[in-house]
Design a protein around this nucleic acid. Structure first.
Length: 563
DNA sequence: AAAATG
DNA sequence: ATTTTGA
DNA sequence: AAAAAC
C-alpha cells in the first residue's frame, strides 16, 4: 500500500510512534459494537473540541478504530454541510469511495444501539460509495491497517555509559503501547488522593466536563485579571476533580479531596443545585471577559497587555489591527495579526504528524543522526492541537550545537517556515548589550527547561499538495543535548499542572533526602543531577526519569491534568 | 484560593 | 498568623 | 516589562 517495505526501522527518525495495534483491548463494556472493525475518520472542522471529544469517545466505545486521515477510513463523519467547505477537508475523488455521513448518524446510532441506515445521513446529497452497499457496520474489507510507520520505539541513540534499564523492558517488550492507553476512565480506577497531579492518572475525557468547564471560566477570569494565586488554586482544584472517575452527584464525594477548599466546594454545590455556577455565567456574559479573552488569543498578547489595551478602548482584534496600523506594537505582534485567522484554527493529528515528518526530513538533510518526539497535547492524545511541539536531539552528545539555526535556515529557504517569532539560546540573551549587564550566565538556582534549551518559535505552511491544509501553523522547535533529551520530552509533554507538580514533588519529596536511600536528586531544566556529587545523570528513557524521581510511570495520555 | 509552615 | 504556590 | 512554553 504505502511506500514502505518492511525495512529496518529508520534509526534517525525516532518518532514516538508505535507499531500497528495487533490486539484490540478487550475492555469494551456491554456497549453495542455496531462499529466493530470499522475505521472511522471524524472531520474536526466546525466541531468544538468537546464535541469532537464526545464523538471520538462514542465511536471508540462502539468498536470503531479512529484514523487520522479520511483516505484510510470506511466511514467519514462530518459536521460540515456546505459542499464547498467539505471539499476542503476531503477530496471528492476520495469521498466517493466511502460513506460520508453527518455526525448525527453516530449520535442516533449510539442512542439506538445499532447502526442507522446510512442513506438517511448522507453529508452531501447523492454522495454515496460507488461500490459498497449496506451499512458500514457489517462486512467491510480488512481494516486498512497500513502501518506506514515502522520505528517501533524511539530507538534511543546509543547509551554512552550508564547501564541499560532492567532486562525486561529491553528488547521488544514495550509493555505500554501508547495507543492502548484509553482517553477516558475504564472500569476500576483509583479515586484521586494525592495532592500531586504527577501521582494521579488523568485521562483526556472525564465524567464531569460540564462542571469543570464552568470552574475553568472562573479560573480563566482570575488569570486574565492578574490574580494568579487564585488562578493557581482553581487549577489545582480542577485538576483533582478531573481525576475523579465518577459523576459527581454530591459534595460529600469531594469533601476530602486535596485542593478543594470551601470556595470550590460551594461552587460545586451551586452547580449540583442549579446545573450552573452563577459566578461563572456572569463572567462569561461580561463584555470585559469576552474582550480580554479575544485579545489574548493573539500571539504575544498576554493578560497584562490585554488589560492595558482594554483600558485604552481596544476591545477586539479588529480594533487591535487599527491600533497597530497607527504605529503601535512590535514586529512580532504585526506578524501575528497577519496570520491570526489561520492560527485560530486547530490542527488535526494527521497534519501534526506530517509537519513533524517534514521537520525530521530537514534534520536528516542538515545533520544526519537526529531524532525527535512530538510533545505537547498531541502526545497526550488530543484530537487536535493549537501548535506543534517538536523536541529533537542528536545521538552524539554535543553534535546538536548550532542545530536550531541550521534547521531554521534550511526550512526557511525551503519556504516551509514563513514567519519566525523568535530564536532563543540559553545564556545568550538577545537583549544584553554585551558588556557588563550579565551577572551570571547560568543562575545558581535552577531555571526551567524554557530558559536552558535552544529553541525556535516559528510559523510553518504545509501546502495542500503535500497533505497540509494550506494554513499557517505555529511550530515550536526545541533542541536538547542528548543527555537531557528525555527530561526535555517529559518537560514538554505537559500538561501544565502535571509539570508544576513534578517539580513540586521533586522539591518537597526528593530534595530533602533526609535518611532516604537512593534519593537526593535535583530535577530541572538541565536534567537530573545527583546532589551528592553534583553529577549529572545520563537518562536513556522517559520511564527512567520517573524512576529516578521515585514516581510510578504515567503514560502521556494520562497526564491530562488541566482543562 | 488552598495548604504548608512556623 | 504567615508563607508558599513551577521553574 | 511582558510573554512564551509545557
Amino acid at each position: 500500500m504505502s511506500k514502505r517495505p518492511p525495512l529496518l526501522p529508520d534509526p534517525s527518525s525516532s518518532t514516538d510512534r508505535r507499531p500497528p495495534p495487533p490486539k484490540r483491548p478487550r475492555l469494551q463494556a456491554q456497549v453495542p459494537q455496531f462499529l466493530a472493525g470499522t475505521t472511522v475518520h471524524i472531520v474536526p472542522a466546525k466541531l468544538s473540541d468537546s464535541a469532537l471529544a464526545h464523538l471520538c469517545c462514542l465511536a471508540e466505545s462502539h468498536g470503531a478504530r479512529l484514523v487520522p486521515i479520511p483516505q484510510r477510513a470506511d466511514v467519514v463523519l462530518t459536521a460540515v454541510s456546505a459542499p464547498k467547505r467539505l471539499e476542503r477537508h476531503l477530496p471528492l475523488s476520495e469521498a466517493g469511495k466511502r460513506w460520508v455521513l453527518s455526525t448525527q448518524w453516530l449520535e442516533d446510532s449510539a442512542a439506538l444501539g445499532e447502526g442507522r441506515p446510512c442513506e438517511e445521513y448522507l453529508a452531501l446529497k447523492g454522495l454515496r460509495p460507488a461500490s459498497r452497499a449496506g451499512t458500514p457496520a457489517l462486512t467491510t474489507s480488512a481494516p486498512s491497517t497500513a502501518p506506514s510507520t515502522p520505528a517501533p520505539e524511539p530507538v534511543s541513540p546509543k547509551p554512552a555509559n550508564a547501564k541499560p534499564p532492567p532486562p525486561a523492558p529491553g528488547t521488544s517488550g514495550r509493555t505500554t503501547n501508547d495507543e492502548e492507553i484509553p482517553l477516558n476512565f475504564t472500569t476500576p480506577w483509583p479515586l484521586p488522593n494525592s495532592r500531586y497531579a504527577c501521582k494521579r492518572r488523568t485521562p483526556l475525557y472525564t465524567p464531569n466536563e460540564e462542571l469543570l468547564r464552568s470552574l475553568a471560566v472562573i479560573m480563566r477570569s482570575r488569570e486574565l485579571e492578574g490574580e494568579d494565586r487564585s488562578a493557581l488554586s482553581y487549577a489545582r482544584g480542577i485538576s483533582v476533580l478531573k481525576a475523579y472517575p465518577r459523576r459527581i452527584t454530591s459534595v460529600s464525594q469531594i469533601h476530602s479531596l486535596p485542593g478543594v477548599g470551601p470556595k470550590i466546594t460551594s461552587l460545586v454545590a451551586q452547580y449540583l443545585d442549579t446545573s450552573a455556577i452563577p459566578e461563572s455565567s456572569t463572567i462569561l456574559a461580561s463584555a470585559r471577559f469576552q474582550a480580554l479573552e479575544e485579545l489574548t488569543k493573539v500571539h504575544s498578547v498576554g493578560s497584562t497587555t490585554a488589560r492595558a489595551l482594554y483600558a485604552r478602548g481596544v476591545t477586539n482584534v479588529h480594533e487591535m489591527r487599527e491600533w497597530v496600523a497607527m504605529g503601535n506594537g512590535g514586529e512580532v505582534l504585526r506578524m501575528a495579526l497577519e496570520i491570526h485567522e489561520d492560527l485560530m484554527i486547530r490542527i488535526p493529528r494527521a497534519e501534526v504528524e506530517l509537519i513533524a515528518a517534514r521537520v525530521q526530513k530537514a534534520l536528516d538533510a542538515v545533520l544526519p543522526g537526529c531524532m525527535h518526539t512530538i510533545c505537547g497535547g498531541h502526545r497526550r492524545g488530543k484530537p487536535t492541537s493549537g501548535d506543534v511541539d517538536i523536541i529533537f536531539t542528536h545521538r552524539e552528545q554535543g553534535k546538536e550545537q548550532g542545530l536550531v539555526e541550521k534547521l531554521v535556515n534550511y526550512l526557511s529557504n525551503d519556504g516551509f517556515i514563513t514567519h519566525i517569532f523568535g530564536v532563543m539560546h540559553p545564556g545568550h540573551n538577545p537583549f544584553s548589550s554585551s558588556s557588563h549587564t550579565r551577572s551570571k550566565v547560568r543562575p545558581a538556582h535552577p531555571s526551567s527547561h524554557f530558559d536552558t534549551l535552544s529553541k525556535a518559535l516559528v510559523v510553518c505552511l504545509l501546502p495542500p499538495s503535500e497533505g497540509g491544509a494550506g494554513l499557517h501553523r505555529r511550530v515550536d522547535l526545541i533542541c536538547a543535548p542528548r543527555d537531557v533529551y528525555w527530561c526535555a520530552v517529559v518537560g514538554w509533554s505537559g500538561s501544565k499542572q502535571f509539570e508544576r507538580d513534578l517539580r513540586l514533588w521533586a522539591k518537597q519529596e526528593i530534595l530533602p533526602a533526609h535518611g532516604r536511600l537512593g534519593r537526593g536528586i535535583k530535577f530541572d531544566s538541565s536534567g537530573l543531577t545527583r546532589l551528592r556529587d553534583t553529577q549529572p545523570i545520563y537518562v536513556d528513557s522517559e520511564k527512567q526519569v520517573f524512576e529516578l524521581l521515585g514516581l510510578e510511570y504515567v503514560p502521556p495520555r494520562l497526564r491530562n491534568a488541566d482543562m
